[in-house]
Write a protein that binds this DNA or RNA. Structure first.
Length: 421
RNA sequence: GCGGUCGUAGCUCAGCUGGUAGAGCGCCGCGUUGUGGUCGCGGAUGUCGCGGGUUCGAGUCCCGUCGAUCGCCCCA
């Protein structure tokens, strides 16, 4: 026997019927964006490596050790996208969307790639839903973006997650705070690796999960206490609009994100039931990114929501998401004449939008009924010589077991009517 | 990249201190005429992750490897 080829490591596979949940979650997370004027964007899965190095930031873990990078036949360095924002910015700049009506509002649902050690909820190919609103400083826009994420989660029935927000300041006030924090960190007892992090990206140290580190951070200076007047007012208004939108949140001054481009408003959705990988989504403002990538000096804000992790969160909260039924109606033909009839009927029903499957392979009635049951269909229709002679078919409800005889001519109409009821 | 745990039928797992494999679920069939889901009976399916070693003999011990999983770093 030939050797079985295995799938790539750390990539989740969604098979029926669970894959229906994946589709439903993705739909739930993208739907709010479509209701707020965001248009869909389809982008390359790979980009020039320098896009991510410049956009995401060289000092980030994502860029320094988690990228799938290779050289193509033209000796160009190519990278499978590790996140979505940089690619969106590139496309916006390249195609001049920033020259049109602002803000540019865009959403996507796509796979991303990170060469990490796989774990539960952490994959090498991860699915994310994201939106970007480019060319707007208005704090109401920040609140909209956050609210759309919240709406996505809420529409799935999730209730146990927590929205955390803070402000990271801007190019004016961040450097001073950063220096202040570095001074503070220098006075602590930290291991070499953490000291290095304090030098390169001091904010990241605030996020350390280790008790011995957290203990020393009790009195660490926080960015929210050192915002410039503009940033403080912006942050105040974001919270104001979130209240108007009825989006519950907690202020989380220690919130740190892994990508370098974030400024001002930053947020994260955390789900306590997921263990170590508790972040189900996050995002923030990136006011310097466009210019960093050679575009017009436009600010922007967006989010990335983990589709995989949201599925896990739904499962953890015991939510049933998506319809696992493969069809609405299952046809059971007995004999070749009935089979002709069933094939034709299946075609007719599908054309009017009814999901139909039928018993193939000339199975015995009993086996076919079993298949009907397993299909999740609401109705079964047995078609045999009697039905063909009488021109009337039994429409059987698989839930109740009751069946009514329906004239052949009105069967399609009756089924459509019953399914809509 | 680092540390822990695990890897037996499609799925969930049992298999005590080494003696040539089991259960439940699922799947297929039967319970006489054309009706599924419950019940009863019957049946198929495993190179016990892979490679090597110890042994008369290994699913069971040792080493390696791959994979999964939990934690760290980090992140969706």
């Amino acid at each position: 026997m030939a050797e079985i080829i295995k799938g790539p490591k750390g990539v989740p596979v969604y098979l029926p019927p669970q894959s229906a949940t994946f589709l439903a979650v993705r739909e739930a997370l993208t739907s709010p964006a479509r209701h707020a004027g965001y248009g869909y964007i389809e982008l390359p899965v790979y980009e020039d490596t320098s896009l991510f190095v410049r956009g995401v930031g060289e000092s980030t873990d994502v860029v320094s050790k988690e990228m799938f990078t290779f050289t193509d036949r033209g000796e160009r360095s190519i990278t499978l996208r590790p996140e979505g924002t940089a690619g969106v910015m590139r496309a916006v700049i390249e195609h001049g969307l920033d020259k049109g009506q602002l803000p540019v509002k865009i959403y996507y649902a796509a796979p991303f790639f990170r060469a990490e050690r796989p774990q539960f909820g952490r994959y090498r190919q991860l699915q994310q839903v994201g939106i970007e609103a480019i060319g707007g400083d208005d704090p109401a826009l920040d609140a909209e973006v956050i609210a759309l994420a919240d709406e996505g989660y809420r529409s799935l029935g999730l209730s146990k997650y927590e929205l955390r927000i803070t402000s990271l300041g801007c190019a004016n006030c961040r450097p001073a705070y950063r220096a202040l924090l570095q001074d503070f960190l220098r006075g602590l007892e930290l291991d070499v690796e953490t000291q290095e992090r304090a030098r390169v990206n001091p904010l990241r140290v605030l996020d350390d999960k280790r008790m011995e580190v957290q203990r020393q951070l009790t009195h660490a200076p926080l960015q929210v206490d050192h915002l410039c007047a503009d940033c403080a007012e912006h942050y105040r208004l974001v919270k104001h609009y979130l209240l108007l939108l009825n989006v519950p949140f907690v202020e989380f001054p220690r919130l740190v994100r892994g990508l370098d481009y974030y400024t001002r408003t930053t947020f994260e959705f955390d789900h306590p039931l997921l263990g170590a990988q508790s972040g189900i989504g996050g995002g923030g403002r990136y006011d310097g990114l466009m210019t960093e990538l050679g575009g017009a000096p436009l600010s922007g804000i967006g989010f990335g929501l983990g589709t995989d992790r949201t599925m896990i969160a739904c499962d953890a909260e015991g939510l049933t998401v998506g319809d696992p039924a493969r069809c609405d109606v299952f046809l059971v033909p007995l004999g070749s004449e009935a089979k002709d009839y069933a094939v034709r009927l299946a075609g007719q029903l599908r054309r009017v939008g009814v999901r139909v499957d039928m018993a193939y392979g000339d199975r015995a009635l009993k086996g076919s009924m079993k298949a009907a049951d397993r299909s999740g269909a609401r109705y079964a229709v047995v078609i045999g010589d009697r039905e063909l002679a009488d021109r009337a078919l039994p429409l059987k409800s698989l839930a109740t077991g009751e069946q009514e005889l329906v004239p052949a001519d009105s069967l399609v109409q009756t089924i459509v009517g019953n399914l809509e009821a």
